[in-house]
C-alpha cells in the first residue's frame, strides 16, 4: 500500500473542504494511505515575493517534517506542488542545503534531501494508472463534456517535475478525464492562468483573466470545468458572479475538482463523500445529466 504525507496547504482546508473530502475518499478507494502531519504550514510560495530565502526556508521546513516521518508528500494545491518540488530541486545543491539546514536547526529540523513531492492527480496517473481507473468505473459519465484546467504550478517550472508533463501540451488530466468516460474538450485557452497568485495585489487582473477563459469556452457546449487546484477553483467559481456583474455576462460554468468527478464515476455519494453540495456555482445540472 502506498503511504503519503497529505499536504493540505492554506486554502483547501479552510475554504474548499470539498476538495479535501473528495481527495481523501478517492485515495481511500485506491488504497492510498494519507497521513496528516499537524505541523505542516504554508508552503512558502507567497513569501517568495518579499524574500526568496524565506520561501525556500518555509518549503524546506515542510519537507523536513515529511522526511522525519519517512514519507513522500502528496499535495492537493498546484502551487504547493510547484513550490515544494522547486525547493526539492534547489536543495539538491549541498551549499544551499547546508545554509538552509543551519537555520532549520533553530526549529529542531533538518532536511537531508530524500522527499519526493507529487500532486494527487500525478499519483493517480502514475501509481494507480489510467487502466486501473478505467476498470473501476461504475457510473456512466459519457454524456459529460468538460474543459480541463491544469493549473500553472502543476506543470511549471518544468525542471521541478522530472519531465512528467510537457507544459505547453499537457495530457495527464485529459487522460484521467477520458479514463472515467467523460469527454475532455480541447480549447485555445487551455493553459491560461487563473490569476490566483496575483489576486491579493489586483482583483481586477483576476477578473480579466477569468473573463478571457470563460469567453473562450462559451461556445464549446461544456457541462463544466474540471480542475485540480483549489485556488483555480476559487477564481473560476467564487469570482464567476463578479465577472458576470462586471462585464454584463451570463456565464454559468459548474467548477468541479477532479477527485470529485472521479468519485462520481466510482459510485461515491455526491454529498457525503464528495462535498458537491458545497459549491458556489451549483453543480446540480451536472448531477442531473448523469443521473
Amino acid at each position: 500500500m502506498n503511504k503519503y504525507a497529505l499536504f493540505l496547504g492554506c486554502t483547501t482546508p479552510t475554504q474548499v473542504p470539498q476538495y479535501e473530502i473528495s481527495a481523501r475518499w478517492v485515495c481511500k478507494y485506491f488504497g492510498i494511505e494519507l497521513i496528516d502531519i499537524k505541523e505542516f504550514t504554508c508552503c512558502g510560495i507567497n513569501q517568495v515575493n518579499l524574500s526568496i530565502e524565506a520561501g525556500l526556508l518555509m518549503a524546506a521546513m515542510n519537507l523536513a517534517l515529511a522526511e522525519a516521518e519517512k514519507l513522500d508528500i502528496l499535495t492537493l494545491c498546484a502551487s504547493c506542488t510547484g513550490a515544494l518540488a522547486e525547493a526539492v530541486e534547489k536543495l539538491k545543491d549541498d551549499t544551499t542545503r547546508n545554509r538552509v539546514n543551519e537555520k532549520l536547526r533553530e526549529v529542531r529540523l533538518e532536511y537531508k534531501g530524500e522527499v519526493k513531492v507529487r500532486h494527487i492527480s500525478r499519483v493517480l496517473y502514475e501509481d494507480v494508472g489510467v487502466e486501473k481507473i478505467k476498470s473501476e468505473v461504475k457510473r456512466d459519465l459519457s454524456s459529460l463534456r468538460v474543459a480541463p484546467h491544469y493549473g500553472c504550478h502543476y506543470l511549471k517550472p518544468k525542471s521541478a517535475f522530472e519531465g512528467f508533463e510537457e507544459p505547453d501540451n499537457p495530457r495527464s488530466l485529459h487522460q484521467l478525464i477520458s479514463a472515467i468516460g467523460a469527454q475532455p474538450v480541447n480549447y485555445e485557452a487551455l493553459n491560461l492562468c487563473c490569476g490566483g497568485k496575483v489576486f491579493p495585489v489586483s482583483e481586477d487582473l483576476v477578473h480579466l483573466l477569468v473573463q478571457k477563459k470563460f469567453d473562450n469556452l462559451k461556445d464549446k457546449k461544456i457541462d463544466g470545468i474540471v480542475l485540480q487546484c483549489q485556488t483555480c477553483y476559487l477564481m473560476y467559481s467564487d469570482h464567476q458572479n463578479k465577472v458576470n456583474e462586471k462585464y454584463g455576462k451570463q456565464y454559468n460554468f459548474p467548477i468541479i475538482l477532479y477527485p470529485q468527478l472521479l468519485g462520481l464515476a466510482l459510485g461515491a455519494d455526491p454529498v457525503k463523500d464528495l462535498g458537491l453540495n458545497l459549491h458556489t456555482v451549483s453543480v446540480d445540472k451536472v448531477l442531473e445529466k448523469i443521473a
Binding site: 493540505l8 482546508p13 479552510t14 473542504p17 479535501e20 473530502i21 496528516d36 499537524k38 505541523e39 504550514t41 504554508c42 513569501q47 518579499l50 524574500s51 530565502e53 524565506a54 526556508l57 518555509m58 521546513m61 537555520k103 533553530e106 526549529v107 462535498g275
Partner: peptide, 27 residues
C-alpha cells in the same frame, strides 16, 4: 466548525515555527 461538521481532522494552525523561520530569513 465546518471541518467538525464535515468530520475532517482539526487543524493545528500554530505559527511558532513559521514565526522563527520568518525571523531567521529577515523578511
Amino acid at each position: 466548525k465546518k471541518r467538525e461538521e464535515l468530520l475532517l481532522p482539526s487543524l493545528k494552525l500554530e505559527g511558532k515555527n513559521t514565526k522563527k523561520i520568518i525571523e531567521l530569513s529577515g523578511v
